[in-house]
Design a protein around this nucleic acid. Structure first.
Lengths: 329, 329
DNA sequence: TTGAAAGCGGTACCAG
DNA sequence: CTGGTACCGCTTTCAA
């Protein structure tokens, strides 16, 4: 069995209480005693049992993270940022993947909530009411979604779409398609909103296609309708869909960007690795994760801060090989 | 504060002991009483505090997972499998990412070991001695590495390479390059071993290039040496390197597979999404994760099983568009 | 079949 | 500055 506080106390010839103080509040202990205790602790390889400590302090030193699908390359980046920041702050991280199932999400929140100081919900799929009620009883931060005054980190989706449309209109495109993601997706709604505003402002036509599943095959399926729509450029809900579009265009002998321009969203690592490389709206995924942890830790220190705690991270269009001037009419 | 066993006891008009029994050993409680308790528990939304339970039972119901880099698309697949299986077995999962740093790995093992029933080390980078000593004091399973008798799940790397070489020789290739991954990587050593055996057996030439970092840029950097080696086919340590090769070949106007054939390893999702799609040796990543959890849980139930607990998962060559006959000489 | 009591590993308060 | 004591939430004897 592991070494406990009593073992250290015995070895140092003091009481457990003193060991506790020597380790966590050295000022309250005589220097010499503290020294002796700490040496004993080191010698025995002691480190406190966090579960036991949590029982009395109410702080476990653990955070929980729930994501819809690690298979979607958007999420690992965020998870990595969260993990890194949590570790810096000396917190461990529980991870759960819901496989895009809102019911699993709900159940996992319930289960995890007990074992952690706070939860991070990445792109949660559950309903607003549920989210609100969870947020009321557990410290909780959302990533990539906004509901009421629940603390959240989001991306500047609207501005990202503005950048994409500006890029395309500057190249001369006047008729643009959008391949939509799931209707239930908050970020899809935001992106549509930004797109409509930008196209209207620029006076160019927008053709909405879909919705499709935010996956490769969704993009493949959307490609033919896009071509049928007679546009010279297409913006996809995300990069994975855009890759599906590229693939199907290639299969049909449509060259990109000569015949049609393609823009994705997210800037997953893959986007820069394909040919032609994908022009896309880049999101700071790791920063998002780190910011989420910071927000949560701040909230734990000062729960009153709730409500003043939402942040939108900037996005940046990455111009690459998949966009160019429209073909001559 | 959360609802505790006492709240349930009060609501049901029984003692905490009875609540505990009604929930975990229903046979020891009168049916009617048990029913009443369970209803009260449901009504109040009670679920036991696992940390408190762990304190006394010695089992936390938590597993720990340490991976080198979530940014490498190989790992999310494995993590997903682990997470899914752990959840089915009613266990929660701690996740840590070491950023390829062996020192961080060591420290994380120490930290996590206290909070979990067992650890899963995915492609661990630390030294053998360290691994052995950790394995001696903590229930532990390795994925994608084998050291002595430590329980482990691995892939049939050697056979995978045999399949790749068989494919290429069947197409007529007689001179093949290998772009090596890190020397410190166990799976790279295994793959080299399989490759040498297979090429020798087939009587074809093998040119080893590298090692390079197992990343896209590593592949880009290796492309020119590969071309200079005068081979008609190249096998890469992994898919990400292979994608780098494809990119650089494309940039130099070398067409794949007409001028040269390319094979990767891992079958990351991306491999099927690029053009030409990548022929690669597929590894059952999710199965690996699930098998790892099963192994660990078995070990926890019966520690004596240690040593009889290694398993190698089969691999399957996925023939796609990046391989074809060699160009006429 | 049930309740009381002890204790898992810590921390916090109170006396001294 | 230090030790004793109570208690965090739960499980598990031991008696009744």
């Amino acid at each position: 069995m592991a070494v406990t506080i009593k073992d250290v106390a015995r070895a140092a010839g003091v009481s457990p209480s003193t060991v506790c103080r020597a380790l966590s509040t050295p000022d309250l202990v005589r220097a010499e005693t503290g020294e002796r205790v700490r040496r004993a602790a080191t010698d025995l390889g002691y480190s406190p049992n966090r579960a036991a400590r949590g029982l009395i302090t109410g702080r476990t030193g653990n955070l929980g993270l729930i994501v819809p699908d690690l298979g979607n390359p958007f999420f690992p980046g965020v998870v990595k940022g969260i993990q890194a920041r949590a570790r810096e702050a000396d917190h461990a991280l529980f991870l759960a993947d819901t496989d895009e199932d809102p019911a699993a999400e709900t159940q996992l929140v319930r289960t995890l909530a007990k074992q952690v100081d706070g939860l991070i919900l990445c792109s949660p799929r559950m309903g607003e009411q549920e989210l609100r009620s969870f947020a009321a009883e557990t410290p909780l931060v959302m990533l990539n979604r906004r509901v009421g005054r629940i603390p959240a980190i989001t991306f500047a989706n609207v501005d990202g779409m503005r950048q994409a449309v500006t890029h395309l209109t500057a190249l001369g495109h006047r008729r643009i398609a959008y391949v939509a993601g799931p209707r239930t997706s908050w970020s899809n709604r935001e992106r549509v909103r930004g797109l409509r505003a930008a196209t209207t402002a620029a006076g160019v036509e927008l053709v909405e296609i879909g919705p499709v599943q935010p996956q490769y095959d969704g993009g493949v399926a959307a490609a033919d309708p896009v071509l049928a729509a007679g546009v010279t450029a297409v913006i996809a809900y995300n990069d994975v869909i855009a890759l599906g579009l590229l693939s199907r265009f290639n299969a049909r002998g449509i060259t990109v960007p000569a015949a049609i321009s393609v823009i994705g969203f997210d800037d997953i690592p893959l986007a820069a690795m394909v040919h032609p490389s994908l022009t896309t709206v880049g999101l700071p995924m790791e920063s998002c994760g780190r910011a989420g942890v910071d927000l949560l830790l701040g909230l734990l220190q000062d729960p009153a801060r709730f409500g003043a705690t939402r942040r939108e991270l900037g996005t940046q269009l990455m111009v690459r090989g998949s966009t160019g001037p429209p073909p001559p009419a």
